[in-house]
Computed example of a mutant assay.
Amino acid sequence: MNTITKGLIAGAAGTSALNFTTYLDMAVRGRPASSTPEETVERLAGDTHVDLGEGQQAEARKEGVGTLLGYATGLASAVGYGVLARRRVPWPVGVLALTALAMTGSNAPMTVLGVTDPRKWPVSSWLSDAIPHLAYGAAAYLAYEHLR
């Protein structure tokens, strides 16, 4: 099995863990979903002059594309890890590397586009972001190393 295939499988496992952790947090704390993926799509569409449509159609496209960007980030992060980590990496280093890749991949574009500013986040927002990404890192690492 090649590096890209292993990375895609590991990224899917990590993304599932991230989503599970996020939705569990929403259920336990009764908090709403983040609107930043949709805001990111709206900014990208505006900057690239892409028409998302009107009303419900535009909202559905923002939600759908925002979710797809999340999956793409999860898959690309694990593929990137596989390309960079040609040899087995100790679990704490691998988990933290995958966590950092996924967090950077999701937050950097939103920061550059002005959708969010992590420097202004309260601790609760950092935890709501870091814990699911840590779950991503752990699941993706375990999957990748199992496939190795």
Rank of each mutant, 00 (worst) to 15 (best):
A97Y: 00
V93A: 10
V95G: 08
L44E: 02
L24C: 12
A33H: 13
G74H: 02
M26A: 12
Q56L: 14
T5R: 03
A13Q: 07
L24I: 14
W126P: 10
T67Y: 02
P122M: 01
G105C: 10
T104K: 02
L69K: 04
V123K: 09
L52M: 12
L96S: 09
E145V: 09
P118M: 11
Y136D: 03
L147Y: 06
V83D: 08
S16V: 11
V28P: 09
Y136R: 02
A143M: 05
F20R: 05
N107D: 08
H49Y: 00
V93C: 04
A97P: 06
G70I: 02
V89E: 12
L24V: 15
V95S: 12
R119C: 08
A139E: 13
R148H: 12
K6W: 04
L75Q: 06
H49N: 13
Y136H: 01
T36N: 12
A60P: 08
G94W: 01
L8C: 08
I9Q: 11
N107S: 11
G74K: 01
V95A: 13
G11N: 08
A138W: 03
E145I: 09
A76G: 12
W91C: 05
A78W: 02
H49E: 15
M103T: 00
V89R: 08
G105Q: 07
P92I: 01
Y144M: 11
R119H: 09
T116P: 09
S77C: 03
P92T: 03
G66L: 14
G70V: 03
N19Y: 03
A12S: 15
S106E: 13
G66H: 11
A108S: 10
E38C: 05
R86W: 00
T73S: 15
Y141Q: 10
R31N: 11
V83F: 11
Y81Q: 06
R31F: 06
F20V: 15
S124P: 07
V28M: 04
A58M: 09
R43G: 03
P92L: 01
S106V: 00
A138N: 05
P32K: 13
P109K: 02
V123W: 05
A33T: 10
